[in-house]
Design a binder for these strands. Structure first.
Lengths: 234, 234
DNA sequence: AGACTGATGTCTACACCGTAGGTCTACGGA
DNA sequence: TCCGTAGACCTACGGTGTAGACATCAGTCT
């Protein structure tokens, strides 16, 4: 008996960790694997191996692999909390934005899921945890006196910008981190000089990218510009 | 001879279209398939079938499947043209933005590639066609009198916003297009009323989303705000 | 002319994948 | 006591990406 159960969970994690397998445990483990090795290294079989279970048991807690990925995205997004009762809506949105950035940076491999999964699913069918921030921001803004339409508009502007920003920030990858010369560090020396003169000349600027500052400046522009245009154009 | 060649390319497209298989032809076919059925329905074998070739021949023109996907993204992005000599940089950026939106909307299934692929590759190793718009925008802005650093900053702001916007716009999916009632059309009736009151009450606003207008308003805010902050904060 | 070389296409094979369908077990309520 | 149901497991099927060996052929050099 022990032989067969040991055989059914041969490699990796504990053979039978303890107690039952819950959706949370499964998602937590999946998140850990994605954080470590990236999305496309996550397989149902590999996840089951890490949990010490049979691959098929996962389907008790997730309908699909797609559903599992949705769950991972939801888990990460659940770290984001919005206080709909804050009376200073600008400050609250800033706080949310900083939070969002921090979460994205600490789970960079999940970001593709965050931006990509909603493209496949109509709003109302998305995992509920995903809709929570939307609902809460709407509450925040209507309590601040905005109409529903304007609230939605502001939500879209802020989160659109936020998604764009973290996509930008996560693209800053240094090729040879140990190099001291910026041009070599970024690998820009391979670009033909006559084809990409501007890009090459920006090596030092590219190397000193400051994501946090960039986010703040974007928010400055956005939050300053938003209320002035919001009602007039709709 | 004919028998064996017909056997090697059994289903789908022409058996041996004509002439050689080029990278362009392969990418064009791949793009077509992605546009039709989405990214994850694209397999090397399926693509080969559609081309009437052996799956392995694809590897003469793409190192990987990843490389092939990069190629598809590059192909699409190549439709984007920037005129670096336009003396009105604001107008030119607006034109680029509208172009970008149009391209993204006509290849919605490629958008995940566009926003996601650069996350894996350091700037200098990205497909050249992908860097072309960046270089050209930098040229446009430095010719307009901006410093390199400011030019880069503006590029990031605009394209970050652009990415965010189209991610937003592509999320607008109606569940039952034939329904007339907005709440049902969007499927919002499934959301528990007491948990998502704000969201549910916005059915009509959600249903009348106008992407083009939204883009213009965002550009208004961004382009108005950008020059005023650009040098002062760096 | 003949040999060599490199690009291109083809075939086979391998390890891995997602998951349909069925079975075994344990348990809680009737 | 019996049944229903939830959880876990096993087997099996039809796919996947791609390594590695081989075939074909155009061109180039001798």
């Amino acid at each position: 008996m022990e032989a067969s159960s040991a055989d059914s969970a041969p490699r990796g994690g504990e053979p039978h960790p303890d107690g039952k397998l819950t959706r949370e445990r499964m998602l937590a483990c999946a998140l850990e694997m994605v954080d470590r090795e990236g999305i496309d290294k996550l397989s149902m079989r590999g996840l089951a191996r890490a949990l010490g279970r049979d691959p098929m048991s996962l389907y008790r807690h997730a309908a699909n692999k797609a559903d599992l990925l949705d769950g991972v995205a939801e888990t990460v997004l659940a770290e984001l909390t919005v206080d709909p009762n804050d009376t200073d809506w600008v400050a609250q949105l800033r706080a949310v934005a900083r939070q969002f950035r921090r979460i994205a940076l600490s789970h960079p491999h999940v970001v593709p899921l965050l931006v990509t999964r909603p493209l496949a699913t109509p709003l109302a069918l998305r995992p509920r945890g995903t809709l929570r921030p939307l609902e809460d921001v709407l509450a925040l803004l209507t309590q601040a006196g905005f109409s529903g339409a304007d609230a939605l508009h502001i939500y879209r502007a802020v989160f659109g910008f936020l998604n764009g920003h973290i996509l930008n920030e996560l693209q800053e990858i240094v090729e040879n981190p140990e190099e001291t010369d910026d041009l070599l560090r970024l690998g820009l020396h391979r670009l033909p000089i006559h084809e990409f003169p501007n890009l090459r000349s920006l090596a030092s600027v590219l190397a000193s990218y400051d994501g946090a500052a960039e986010l703040e400046r974007g928010l400055d522009i956005l939050l300053a510009g938003l209320p002035t245009v919001s009602t007039s154009a709709m």
